[in-house]
Simulated assay, not measured.
Amino acid sequence: MKNRNLLLTAIVLASLTSCGSYVRIGDLTGISNRNIDNSEQYVLLERDIESVAKSEKDALEQAVDNMTKEHEGEFLRNAKIYVKSNGKKVKVVGDVWGIQKTNVNVITNANAKIELQVGDKVVFNRKGDIIDGRIIGLNSNSVIVEYGKRNKRVELKYDEVTKTEQ
């Protein structure tokens, strides 16, 4: 009797965990539902964003469209794709890239107005060292800076960077 109950419990638990969890099906360098214009300069808009779509067909396309529309982007990079066992629910996690449409005006305590935009050169403090970098993306709360010989990227608050030149 004990073995029977144990076996029944194991079967129920196995079926519950397989239905409720996502299975990772792949990593993609880039994914898009639109044509990419080579004449445009695309920038990182948001990092590690997640979107879930539920559909009878084209759930992956719907998840990618949801992410790009919500963050006003064009395509995803470093995308990880997960799917439920029935294939009708897809989760996509990745970085949204697009065309930077706005400049950001930062007003300091001394009421000095500083305009930051993609391509501006900035410096910031990293572990006690002053690092030179270039802005590659702007968010409402932070700026994304590329620096170093290997083009490392970091997301910093506006008050952590100092504009040096355009």
Score class of each variant (00 low, 15 high):
17 T>Y: 04
30 G>M: 15
4 R>G: 09
20 G>A: 14
61 E>S: 10
98 G>N: 08
21 S>N: 06
23 V>Y: 12
13 L>R: 01
13 L>G: 02
73 G>F: 08
29 T>N: 15
143 V>D: 02
32 S>V: 11
142 S>G: 00
120 D>S: 09
94 G>A: 11
39 S>N: 13
166 Q>R: 11
93 V>A: 09
148 G>P: 11
9 T>D: 15
159 D>T: 05
124 F>C: 02
110 A>Q: 15
136 I>H: 01
148 G>M: 09
151 N>L: 05
142 S>R: 01
83 V>K: 14
164 T>I: 15
113 K>N: 09
147 Y>H: 04
39 S>Y: 10
107 I>R: 09
147 Y>M: 00
88 K>Q: 13
26 G>A: 12
96 V>A: 04
148 G>S: 13
134 R>Q: 11
98 G>F: 10
57 K>N: 06
11 I>S: 09
151 N>R: 12
143 V>G: 00
75 F>T: 05
159 D>P: 01
109 N>E: 11
87 G>Y: 11
163 K>V: 00
72 E>D: 09
61 E>N: 14
5 N>H: 10
96 V>W: 07
139 N>H: 03
108 T>V: 00
22 Y>Q: 09
165 E>A: 05
97 W>A: 04
101 K>G: 09
152 K>M: 09
155 E>S: 15
143 V>C: 03
30 G>C: 07
64 V>P: 07
63 A>N: 06
115 E>F: 02
13 L>F: 14
157 K>F: 12
24 R>M: 14
64 V>Y: 04
81 I>S: 05
2 K>Q: 12
87 G>H: 13
79 A>I: 08
63 A>I: 11
76 L>G: 01
84 K>I: 03
18 S>Q: 08
156 L>K: 13
97 W>P: 03
91 K>Y: 08
100 Q>L: 06
34 R>V: 13
41 Q>N: 15
113 K>I: 12
1 M>A: 10
119 G>Y: 01
89 K>T: 15
39 S>C: 05
157 K>T: 14
68 T>L: 11
42 Y>T: 05
59 A>Y: 04
35 N>P: 02
127 K>R: 07
18 S>P: 01
42 Y>W: 03
15 S>Q: 08
166 Q>I: 11
32 S>L: 07
150 R>T: 08
42 Y>S: 03
92 V>I: 12
6 L>E: 13
26 G>Y: 11
76 L>P: 02
78 N>A: 10
20 G>T: 13
103 N>V: 06
58 D>K: 13
160 E>N: 10
162 T>C: 02
18 S>A: 10
13 L>W: 01
142 S>I: 00
122 V>T: 02
96 V>F: 08
106 V>W: 10
27 D>L: 11
43 V>P: 01
101 K>N: 12
58 D>I: 01
40 E>V: 05
94 G>E: 09
37 D>A: 00
40 E>Y: 07
150 R>D: 12
7 L>Q: 12
79 A>N: 08
159 D>E: 14
11 I>H: 00
81 I>Q: 03
129 D>K: 15
149 K>S: 13
118 V>E: 06
63 A>H: 07
147 Y>R: 03
29 T>L: 07
76 L>E: 00
86 N>G: 04
32 S>D: 07
6 L>R: 11
